[in-house]
Design a protein around this nucleic acid. Sequence first.
DNA 1: TTGAAAGCGCTAACAG
DNA 2: CTGTTAGCGCTTTCAA
Lengths: 341, 341
Amino acid sequence: MLKVTLKKIASTLGVSTATVSKALKDYPDISEKTKRKVKSLAVSLNYKPNSFAQSLRNQESKTIGLIIPEIVHHFFSNIINGVINAATRKGYFVIVLQSDESYESEKKQIQLLIEKNIDGILLSLSDKTVDYKHIKQIINQDVPIVLYDKISKSINCSKVIIDDKKAAFNATEYLIKTGCKKIAHIRGPLKPQTTIDRFIGYKKALEEHNIPFDKTLVYIGENLSYEDGYNLMDQIIDDHPDIDGVFASTDLVATGVLTRLKEKNIDIPEKVSIIGFSNWFLSKITSPTLSTIDQPGYEMGMKAFNLLHKEINQIKQGMPVNHEVMEISTKVIPRNSTKSI
Amino acid sequence: MLKVTLKKIASTLGVSTATVSKALKDYPDISEKTKRKVKSLAVSLNYKPNSFAQSLRNQESKTIGLIIPEIVHHFFSNIINGVINAATRKGYFVIVLQSDESYESEKKQIQLLIEKNIDGILLSLSDKTVDYKHIKQIINQDVPIVLYDKISKSINCSKVIIDDKKAAFNATEYLIKTGCKKIAHIRGPLKPQTTIDRFIGYKKALEEHNIPFDKTLVYIGENLSYEDGYNLMDQIIDDHPDIDGVFASTDLVATGVLTRLKEKNIDIPEKVSIIGFSNWFLSKITSPTLSTIDQPGYEMGMKAFNLLHKEINQIKQGMPVNHEVMEISTKVIPRNSTKSI
DNA sequence: TTGAAAGCGCTAACAG
DNA sequence: CTGTTAGCGCTTTCAA
């Protein structure tokens, strides 16, 4: 099957390519008759505009780049889903790239996307990203960018985030309201903002409810893995046999905690209550089911794309871009690993 | 920051764009001196070739399309991961699209990708896809396509698949070898090839081990969901109180089965053994842990991309393309929901 | 060793 | 209402 171009249509119809181009786009200055002729021939020849030529002319590709720290991850795959759905709806394609939580590859991916003349970038900072030169540089080049989930306050651009402090506050408060008095917290590594914020939220909830903060109740799960939860639970019980609640930074950790408690025949939630974070798929199928915080990845992906889209249009129309920080609200999902209020 | 083009470099250096272009690509017919001059200016000006122009000239975008039935799914996100990694390594981008298991959107996505002049397509058929005109059409247009996972034998193109029959055979045989004599099978809906093949494998294993096939032992889980497994287990026990093994079509179903059995205080694996399919993440954290079949999505994604890449190159070089069907091997992952051999 | 020129396919300002 | 023309930025042939 040979290529059908404007030129071919023009020549077989004995008109100019300009006429054909305009006719197909319903320009008002083309007669109905010509439009009909052109369109019907275009259809019968199965004409498809060459997107490269269009991009070259219009300097836009209708494609954005999405950089994900880790694709195989329930929360992030929900984000991918949200982004792609929002983008598809607006006629955009999404190129997905993985930074693997590495600073180096994050830099490289951004570089690649810029070279590709992408219309905009959606990025979640890798845990290991320490400086932001690479990002500031692309902002200077007027490439629209929106940060989602893992962000940095020192970057001046639009962002979509979860209020981790508030979410952690709510999780902890929920435990308190169901009667817990001595609540351990398994947090992630020291650096990432999300772990810090969740820790702060935990602390604040205790304070507001007049429970003295005890730093020996805070444990670090380096990988926030199932094993971390499983192993730390032993230590927690050793250190504090009278513990009655655990707020874990992720559902995975919480599941490890839960498994270990069951093995030790400690009743959940009667003796120890557990609340996780993320509302992963698996929290619905543990036994008992896991109370958690819903972290709406799909919505976040949608919002992030829509924000980016707005900026792309603003820049295209030469309007001033006003950056926006959008906060997605989270909520406690009560299940059976906590007592009822 | 203004755009740096070949023209700009050429004019500031007082040479032609042709020379600049060639110098940057190390053409042998350019003097070392000019090359040095050109290259150093290009670097200091931070020159990036315009990818639209390159694509237009070369008729290739170094971008492929990946159509996934469902992004938020452990197996498929592994596939995405594999594809993206393999593609990145070869300098390709991956546009990800979701068909949502709908025939209509599958058709539309393919259409969009073709219009985008993508270099090739990776596709897993949606469950609802009934005819293959849309796919045969793109094959006729010489757009390289590789089918992965859910395929159809009546489409003539390269494919990457798992031998579901063999895998299901192995799963069932494993149950038999660990002493099971009366094995139920929870299969998926009637149409998709994968469910059919898994059913066939199940049946064959029984036959080869002289266990008469009993069709009342085959149950259908319409959605292959946790709930399906949970609910069907009641029925299975009612119908066949002496059941001693269950081969579930997915780990999710198996987890439902497992939970229900535990609730009924039926010992796993002593009284009833369970084997799932896919080696989802969750199979490692149920209690008891779930024996299953490893379905290597990552590897599948890699292989699928590499196959596509080969075809892209063959077509580019005008070579004849020989389609290839690649079978990824699976294996039984023994865990604690089955007895030891 | 270098450059002029054509052209990939499309769009849009302008002229007729 | 239609066509001419120029050009987006790059590559490559051919001539100098």
